[in-house]
């Protein structure tokens, strides 16, 4: 395949999301480079990707090596200064036609773009975890994003055999924000004594949901759920609908983070 919208793609951040995004892009036939300032992270990503894509994905651990790319997707840590700094530096060493996309799930794409020299080429490309198994990608329009950038990104997402949806830049975009009541109402039902954990999960599964909200939170990790909820709440100026729940905070404080620690809402004897 050599007729892709973007031929050369650089993914910044070799964590789980970056590695997954690189995998999806490489599987569609794009030339992919994975870059991370941590050589250990690069090594881990290489180990994970080599089985399927040996020799087809390049790796680097210096920002300076990225001088040619049609699309950059950043999946570095979820902190505004880091993302702004990355894009403003890349801006100076990449041709002005390169599109800069952020995989942020909770930060303002508009604020990230604001520090770039050519903010109109910045947009959001929000992949979901795990990228290889999720068919949806949110294409996020920041205040500054050019229409043509969004069209090309949407076309690219289709080439990845994923479904793009066009989203305006607002906290939590569509999925993170609109799915919130599934988790928060469960916490409120628990808190106000409507039902216990197992009953709530059982009722919602019976109602057609693929898993119960407490099962989902335990799988995702309560620290991640809590961080996302907080970011959403703060992003909407403390809108009461998005207020994090004390039950969740106490579990996070106790280090009961879900499956990965062997205990969250439930005890997971099989793990940890």
């Amino acid at each position: 395949m050599n007729s892709m919208t973007f031929d050369r793609i650089t993914v910044f951040g070799a964590g789980a999301m970056g590695t997954g995004i690189a995998q999806v892009c490489a599987a569609a036939g794009a030339r992919v480079t994975v870059c991370d300032v941590s050589p250990e992270a690069v090594k881990r990503a290489q180990k994970a990707l080599d089985a399927e894509f040996k020799g087809r994905i390049e790796f680097c651990s210096s920002l300076l090596e990225t001088t040619e790319a049609d699309l950059v997707i950043e999946a570095v840590s979820e902190r505004m200064e880091i993302k702004q700094d990355l894009f403003s530096r890349l801006d100076n060493q990449l041709p002005p036609t390169t599109i800069l996309a952020t995989n942020t799930s909770t930060l303002s794409v508009t604020a990230i773009a604001a520090k770039a020299r050519f903010p109109e080429r910045v947009c959001g490309l929000h992949f979901f975890n795990p990228p290889a198994q999720t068919r949806l990608v949110e294409v996020v329009k920041a205040k500054q994003t050019a229409a043509e950038v969004l069209e090309r990104c949407a076309a690219f997402v289709r080439e990845l055999e994923r479904e793009p949806i066009l989203v305006r830049d607002a906290p939590g975009f569509v999925v993170t924000r609109c799915s919130r009541p599934f988790l928060s109402e469960a916490l409120h039902c628990l808190d106000s004594g409507v039902a216990d954990l197992r009953t709530i999960d059982g009722i919602l599964r019976k109602g057609g949901f693929p898993e119960g909200p407490f099962e989902q939170m335990d799988r995702t990790g309560l620290d991640a759920v809590y961080a996302t909820t907080r970011a959403l709440w703060e992003g909407f100026f403390h809108e009461p609908r998005f207020r994090p729940h004390l039950i969740l905070r106490k579990l996070v404080e106790a280090g009961y983070l879900g499956r990965k620690t062997g205990r969250g809402f439930y005890e997971h004897r099989d793990v940890g």
Partner: peptide
């Protein structure tokens, strides 16, 4: 934030509702 069609599509595909 998005069209009604896209919002529904997003939650079916990302959350498997």
């Amino acid at each position: 934030i998005a069209s009604a069609e896209d919002i529904d599509k997003a939650l079916r595909l990302a959350e498997n509702y």
